[in-house]
Design a protein around this nucleic acid. Sequence first.
DNA 1: TCCCAGGGCTTGT
DNA 2: ACAAGCCATGGG
Length: 293
Amino acid sequence: MKVVFKNKEAIVIGQKDFEEQHIFESGQVFRFLPAEKGYIGVAGDKRANIYMQDGNLHIFPCDESIFPFWRDYLDLDTDYTAIKDTLSFDDYVKESINYGSGLRILKQDPFETLISFIISANNNVKRIMGIIDRICTAFGEAKNDTFGTYYAFPTPAELIKASVQDFIECGAGYRAPYLAQTVKSINDGFDLEVIGEMEYSDAKKKIQQLHGVGPKVADCILLFAYGFGQAYPLDVWVKRVTRSIYLQDDCSLKEMSEFSYNKFGEYAGIAQQYMFFNVRKNGLPETIELDRK
DNA sequence: TCCCAGGGCTTGT
DNA sequence: ACAAGCCATGGG
């Protein structure tokens, strides 16, 4: 990997498989917005403008000391071309890869991902973004960069100060008590670190002990924060695709989950992201919709 | 087993 | 303009 640093900017020369829209509008992250060039957003306590230009990836502001953070966050060391080749044996995934060819799975902070995806339950992206933004503004640390003031995602110690009423005022609705209870569990010593070292099925059971975390939210956290490739988040759209194309209308969550691992193995979560991006953008395939009527 | 609980956006009238 | 539908999880 060749990286040039100049004018407070990191430039990764010849970055492959990277399209800002595919990455930041695939439902995995809620703090990035379209900017003049690419997207600008906050991850943890760092903000950056991230954009592709002439085949190079630009990260601004970013110097040598911050670059390893973004390299890890943006999963730059994973070869997505190879993964796409591996997954292309399946026709629907292959078609989906054509639409979302520049998708990558971000490696986000576990606590931030946990809180964000509890909020995501039974909710739409715009509202989720608003709730998270208000929580960060109220409880996160204020920071300044060349774009102005922004707010870091609050730490567990900062967010323990938020009451159920505070979360309601941020717009969290009936998820407010789940948030308050889960933040308390983390502060009381629930260990988010060990999750990453566990077997997938044990990790999934463990994270579901937290209030507001069911099987779908658990898979989102395991995939987007810990990089468990076999986590296959079954939201309503992926359920529809999985039922329509691969299984039957009445199959259970367990059957779909087992199917995904048998079919895509360690790459199930990445296959899910390509399919999710495709189905959200283009809807279910026409033949499938006819079948369902 | 089924039903209900914010609320903002999307889709249909 | 206005109403109905959408949505993961926990609790009754």
